[in-house]
Design a binder for these strands. Structure first.
Lengths: 343, 343
DNA sequence: ATATTGAATGCAAACGTTTGAAAAAATTTC
DNA sequence: GAAATTTTTTCAAACGTTTGCATTCAATAT
């Protein structure tokens, strides 16, 4: 009843005046155990609420069935979608997910990884923090690799690193978005870029630039401003854009949040969307379908990424010694809605 | 180099022809160890990348420094804010968070709890799944309590249960929201209610009802419809509301998502917000400030809840044997924006 | 009656670490 | 140089579980 200390196999053994081995085997339905003994022990175990101490098993078998997920934040739709994807595949297999939020801090990222290794986590899913990017440090990642702990990049990656990764085709997504704006007839397309250096930002930026080039459209430096992935960070840059002598007639935001911020500013200024200004985001977050007007965006399959990343992890785990890292790039998909459909 | 098997204390002991005890003490800066021995061992350990096996320590000390977080979903703003709050307090103390998503399933919730107990998790933060509510089962929770594992309710709770809990004052938040609508002059206030049975839904509903009563406003059954916390689920009910012979002139949504769904439908119908119809949500999610018009809502301090829940856990952990559960109810706060400001 | 079989159980080691107590080694004291 | 003291190291047990091998005991076969 007031079992503050959990019941152990030894306790049960004492109760039945038998050895722990017998109890262990009885509980695991080992054939060499007498039917009656088995029944009695199992019944008693249930009665007192015995639960196997998995910690001791982890030590014995050197398997912890726990995985690390290290991400800069969990307050974005995409991140949580990825985590749900991981969860969907791995939870039924008995894995536990240890979530570590780095808040874009290098130090926290380093400490998190170290902690996960100490805990003998069997694999790590990582989306690199911005500070880590800026600093360019990566010894903490080397550590993980040396330990032969499967390391899978999700979303934000180090490009020159020999590991598996599951990412979305940001480049072509961005390209398609801008191409769409061009096809509609927008001429001065601005880009609210993400933080410099991050693969995600740069790939989308590259898609934007290359698309403009392909269609021989001028690239105007003053139409490219940085944001920080969140709504607030889009407000000032958008205001600046709209106050230009020659303002843009369309804005491609690095993600939906940013595009929604831009939408808000444009509307405040009395601009009609999409007539006066076209808008495109990125992510296809649930809200994007319900803004007014609804937001044209690029679908980014977060759940799928999580599920693919799980697959990559399992491959690596069951793979032979000389393991070749895999890169999965899922296609992104343009979702055309009202915010860009000027007729 | 190719250290597939992690280096152990024993390995180091072999290398220095000394006992594991010496190595352990050397690494922990035990004073009884010779200065030179200590230095040599520490240096070597660093060289080969030794990392303490925390699993063995967990077994020895019966402390795992891991906590369970069991929630129906992580794709809502509020849930992730709570998790970030937990993380903020507990991560620096060395705790690891094991996230379990139940997808509103009773079975998954039960299995998750059982797994966490098996893993000797030191505390569990729980937001009850809807199925569990509907079914009214709670033996799996009794289990947790019997084990004297601190159980803290966050968000969704069982009311008749002797545990600590950190929740937001939904009732008064809802009351304030409706009172505000009334003060502005709205007469026919509809409510897009959450799923029946959940404390959250019912408390907000009660706030709505009691406020109407207080101001002697008629309670119209046809103005109360159920939704499911997400945007999509608000679409049809809102359409129905607006097609009534005597449609509402304001809608109080159970959360921001629902209110945003309603906003979209209202705009599609050509209604002006807030002139033709007033709107209020709940949560103060980041997006709510940037919709057009911006959404009046009730602030729900998710991060704070997470931090308070952490405190409750720590209290219980350090508390004496006869522990009295604490209930923390944080105030919610009306945030008035454009969607309800009819002049 | 003895050997043979078979069933049921126990022993001991292992996983990696810590820690009190004992032992060994080095140093000091007289 | 022996005794006393201090410093340093080792021993052994513990945490909870599993598992190959050995052991026990009863039943059957010879």
């Amino acid at each position: 009843m007031n079992s503050s200390r959990p019941v152990t196999i030894k306790d049960i053994a004492r109760r039945f005046r038998c050895s722990p081995s017998t109890v262990s085997r009885a509980l695991n339905d080992h054939p060499a155990i007498n039917e009656d003994t088995r029944k009695n022990i199992q019944e008693y175990a249930r009665e007192v609420g015995y639960q196997r101490n998995e910690v001791s098993l982890s030590l014995l078998n050197k398997k912890t069935a726990s995985l690390g997920v290290v991400v800069p934040t969990i307050s974005n739709y995409y991140e949580t979608a990825v985590i749900e994807g991981l969860h969907t595949v791995l939870q039924p297999m008995g894995y536990t997910l240890n979530i570590c939020v780095t808040n874009e801090s290098y130090l926290l990222e380093k400490e998190s990884l170290s902690k996960l290794l100490s805990n003998r986590t069997e694999g790590i899913f990582l989306s690199v923090s911005q500070e880590t990017y800026d600093a360019g440090y990566y010894e903490h990642l080397e550590h993980v690799i040396q330990r032969k702990t499967p390391l899978i990049f999700i979303d934000r990656e180090y490009e020159d690193f020999e590991t598996s990764r599951a990412t979305v085709d940001d480049y072509h997504g961005a390209f398609a978005a801008v191409e769409h704006l061009i096809s509609i007839g927008y001429k001065q397309i601005a880009h609210l870029k993400g933080p410099n250096g991050l693969t995600v930002s740069e790939q989308r930026f590259k898609g934007y630039i290359n698309c403009l080039k392909k269609y021989n459209m001028p690239i105007r430096e003053d139409l490219i401003l940085n944001t920080n992935f969140n709504v607030e960070s889009a407000i000032l840059p958008t205001k600046r854009l709209l106050e230009l002598a020659s303002p843009p007639d369309a804005i491609f935001g690095v993600n939906d949040q940013v595009a929604i911020g831009a939408m808000r500013v444009a509307k405040d200024k009395g601009l009609r969307i999409p007539q006066d200004i076209g808008l495109v985001g990125f992510d296809n977050s649930p809200i994007s379908a319900y803004t007014f007007p609804s937001l044209t965006t690029v679908h980014r399959p977060g759940r799928k990424i999580g599920m693919e990343a799980s697959r990559l992890f399992l491959n690596q785990l069951n793979g032979s010694g000389d393991f070749a890292p895999e890169s999965i790039v899922l296609p992104s998909e343009l979702v055309i809605r009202e915010s860009s459909l000027r007729i």
